[in-house]
Design a protein around this nucleic acid. Structure first.
Length: 628
RNA sequence: GGGCUGGUAGCUCAGCUUGGAUAGAGUGCUGGACUUCUAAUCCAGUGGUCGAGGGAUCGAAGCCCUCCCGGCCCGCCA
């Protein structure tokens, strides 16, 4: 609750006033005020202006006068602004106590949007034929952050990673291994996923371009992959699992964990498609074409001028999108589960239990990773296909929002970074391409960031041990990378620039983490345990109250982020918190004041800030170091 | 051609869902603050026809329409 308590009080009082006037159908806002306009503002006068045919200022005068008579515990003053706004000033002594006490609770910032319902978040889902590049990281970080925010909002979250182990991209590296003589062992020091992506995949696809006749081999390999008993499929399974393991190392290093790995090959072999196909026919969601260009195919009719989409070819085989339909339905729990479950071979850091589907027998008890709602994180280039699936699922589930495609714009290479990769893009940003080898590996960006941070940390702390520097630098590097991936809106392209991404100043994770380190240091140097049994009336200057206020807004932003599936809301909140604290830090001394009561009150505030920032950063998967 | 999407300060972006006060950050540039709880910081200044035009409104960056510019998608490929 916290700051929300103040808002609720005002909202209730205004409602009562309106009730007395017999006005019931007005949805006014009561929001945290802009700086310089009190603590909370309401636009109620503007809305009444229409209703009562008076000007907003007159109404605001009337409202503020009437409001004085209301029962107030957290409001100290109401003012009507000449513009027509109604501005409220808080009783800070009481609000300080309320906010700072609550911020000490573990569940501070939690909201109950989910009512403990189950939701599936699927993310990552990178073809297991290459290493993750910086574009994949946007997906991974976005998905992981959303999952964290939803957990904080009282959803039970099942996090899935869909492993497309039977597609064309996998076929390509298998062709490389079986026909072009690539060794199964990478050069020493190179991760297996990097080797498959940088060498086998890129060089194999180069060969196709020179010799189009190789297309036959490619097609045949792809077909063999779908038949689980073929030698090729078994070999591919071995290879893709090695790549997957390398990819997971990258994700785990960034603090990203999963609940279950789902394999496309198993979905294909499970026979789920056949069941869905029958259901689609029964429900008349697809049509058989007797003539025209799609003669002999089953299609989904296109909406608003869009082309029809073929689901089943005239030769009876299913297309790519058709494979996604049973999986989507499975995630929503609409199909009888054909899978058994095993623990993944490797343990995730922090002992987060990781399961995987299997079609062979398993001694483990049956698991359930489906959800009442499903969020699938895929970049917006797939928006059209995802829209088709969303439509189908809304028919199956009779709910419009059961299946959500969470789309986001891609990460491109800035002109400068493209140039360092040897590409001339005429001064423009350019799309990454795994096939062509035009990308920046996630692992290498992490390494660069970490090395730079090690250097910076060593400069500041010559006394620090190497393992400690290493640990701090890891958290800062991960934080920097994660923050860059979510701080802007999902519909903005990120033009990744290697040089600029190494900045550790300004609106970056290190700036935010640094504010936490400063707060920790104050507490450490005080040689005291912060308490909430302090005199809250002593916290009364602008820098102190600004900080209390923003601490109190945590749950409001969590709710906003969860409702709108918008992690950048939390990123901005963390930044705002850090700005408020940095400003406080420069202007307000906390220890060695010679006034123990005041020191204790300020220490309580510093500790509240520290605890709240830790919780907020945790939602972004960013660790808060005590020193840096 | 159709569908989706972006256009706000030199650059990168908030604000738009729910119209109202003075359009905010970061970065850049200029200047100032470290014997002090860590300068990965703070403070001040600089910088805006909110892509263009029209419409409804007492009131538009925001809503509606048209247009311009950029990006992505549109296979019986995956």
């Amino acid at each position: 609750m916290s700051f929300k308590s103040l808002i609720d009080e005002i909202e209730n009082n205004i409602h009562k006033i309106l009730d007395d006037m017999s006005i019931f159908d007005i949805s006014f806002t009561v929001e945290p005020a802009k700086p310089g306009f009190g603590d909370v503002s309401s636009n109620v006068s503007f809305l009444l202006a229409k209703h009562l045919k008076k000007n907003p200022k007159e109404i605001a005068d009337f409202m503020s006068e009437t409001y004085q008579k209301s029962k107030s515990t957290l409001v100290s003053k109401v003012e009507s602004h000449p513009s027509g706004y109604l501005n409220f000033f808080a009783n800070w002594e009481k609000l300080n106590q309320l906010i700072l006490s609550e911020s000490n609770l573990d569940e501070f910032g939690s909201v109950d949007l989910g009512k403990n319902s189950t939701i599936v978040v699927e993310h990552t889902s990178v073809n297991p034929n290459k290493a993750l590049h910086i574009g994949h990281i946007r997906n991974v970080v976005l998905g992981d952050t959303i999952a964290r925010i939803l957990k904080k909002s009282n959803y039970k979250v099942n996090i899935l990673n869909y492993v497309d182990d039977s597609g064309l991209q996998v076929a390509d590296i298998i062709v490389g291994f079986t026909y072009f003589g690539f060794s199964q062992d990478p050069p020493s020091g190179k991760k297996f996923d990097h080797y498959c992506g940088d060498d086998v995949y890129v060089k194999t696809t180069e060969k196709y371009e020179k010799d189009p006749s190789l297309e036959e081999i490619r097609k045949k390999t792809l077909k063999d992959l779908e038949d689980g008993n073929s030698e090729i499929a078994q070999f591919a399974d071995k290879i893709t699992r090695r790549v997957l393991e390398s990819q997971l190392e990258t994700c785990w290093n960034l603090g990203i964990y999963y609940d279950c790995l789902n394999f496309e090959s198993q979905i294909i072999r499970s026979g789920l498609w056949g069941k869905i196909f029958e259901k689609l026919k029964e429900m008349c969601l697809i049509e058989f074409e007797n003539e025209g260009k799609n003669e002999g195919c089953w299609v989904i009719r296109g909406e608003n001028n869009e082309e029809d989409k073929v689901l089943v070819r005239s030769n009876g085989t299913a297309t790519y999108i058709a494979k996604d339909i049973p999986y989507a339905a499975w995630k929503l729990g609409l199909l009888e589960d054909p899978f058994k479950y095993q623990k993944y071979e490797k343990t995730q850091p922090g002992n987060h239990l990781l399961w995987q589907t299997t079609l062979v027998s398993s001694n483990e008890i049956k698991q359930n990773f489906t959800g009442e709602k499903v969020i699938t994180v895929i970049d917006s280039r797939q928006a059209r296909l995802q829209k088709i699936i969303t439509n189908l699922m809304s028919k199956f589930k009779s709910a419009d929002d059961a299946y959500v495609h969470l789309g986001y714009e891609s990460v491109t290479l800035s002109a400068d970074t493209a140039q360092t990769l040897g590409l001339d893009t005429d001064g423009k940003q350019t799309q990454m391409s795994g096939r062509k080898g035009h990308y920046v590996n996630a692992d290498s960006v992490y390494d660069l960031l970490k090395n730079k941070t090690i250097e910076e940390t060593r400069k500041r702390h010559p006394e620090m041990s190497d393992p400690e520097i290493e640990k701090i630098s890891h958290h800062v590097a991960v934080g920097t990378l994660r923050y860059e991936m979510i701080k802007q809106d999902l519909d903005k392209i990120i033009a990744f620039d290697l040089a600029k991404s190494l900045s550790l100043e300004g609106d970056t994770a290190p700036y935010i983490q640094y504010s936490h380190a400063r707060a920790s240091r104050i507490i450490e140097k005080s040689m005291r345990v912060p308490s909430i049994d302090v005199d809250f009336s002593l916290l009364n200057d602008k820098f102190e109250l600004d900080l209390v206020k923003i601490i109190g807004l945590f749950d409001i932003y969590v709710l906003d982020a969860a409702k709108n599936l918008s992690p950048k809301v939390i990123a901005r909140y963390c930044h705002d918190l850090a700005v408020a604290f940095s400003s406080f830090y420069e202007h307000v001394k906390v220890i060695d004041l010679g006034n123990e009561k005041l020191e204790n009150s300020r220490l309580c505030l510093v500790n509240s800030f520290k605890l709240t920032l830790e919780k907020a950063l945790e939602l972004l998967g960013i660790v808060s170091p005590d020193k840096m």
